[in-house]
Amino acid sequence: MGTVLTIRGLSFSYDGRRKILDGLDLDLSAGETLAIMGYSGSGKTTLLKIIAGLLYPYQGTVKTHDAKGGIGYIPQNIGLVKNLTAVQNVAHGALGRIGTLPGLIGKFPQEVFEKAYQLLEDLGLAEAADRKAGQLSGGERQRVAVARALMQNPSILLADEFVSDLDVINAYEVMELTTKICRRNNIALIMTMHDTYLVNKFADRVAVLKDGKIMNEMPGNQISIKTLSAILGGGPVE
């Protein structure tokens, strides 16, 4: 398995004073599912945005290798166009490859819509495909955002707390579907999350972010609230 992402000595600050990330190192293999955990405000979203190329300047290096399809990104609060239907939002994932002119006149290739419907079906959303995004439930919108990111055919998918607003059943389902699709298509997945149970169940590896660095890494099935608390220096947990 080749490496798709190498991060070395990454430091970042929003205001030029307080360092949110401070000499962070991280590697990611093709097709791997990595969970990133850490306190709220520890810089998880910041890290994902930097990897996605949405935030700069930073110090250090962030290199992707052989990431042909680019990087897909599921923002923490989803970010769908409410006035458009689910399938139109999914088609947005193809905006980088359909060409400016066809895009301007709104002529998406047939392949794009076929794939968009297929992705929604794979994610259990066939019913809602033609409904406006603004009228979908939280869980349905979450799935649309996953489909939009997959529409891009990414080599790396970044998912920012993409199930934390869902009820446990929906969270489990979306997580299972997404990790399955990523494994099947050899997409490396980085997901930030808080739920140790889901990490145990679905992540190959977990990295804990603290003080701007990865403090600890371990196989996904070895994390518990107890170990997490010990790493983060929280109070004793029984």
């Binding site: 949405l54 905006l95 301007l104």
Partner: peptide, 16 residues
């Protein structure tokens, strides 16, 4: 801004 972020990563031209 999250709508813009999610589409920017596709490398879509600004006009699209």
């Amino acid at each position: 801004p999250e709508i813009l972020d999610a589409i920017r990563v596709t490398k879509a031209p600004r006009i699209l």
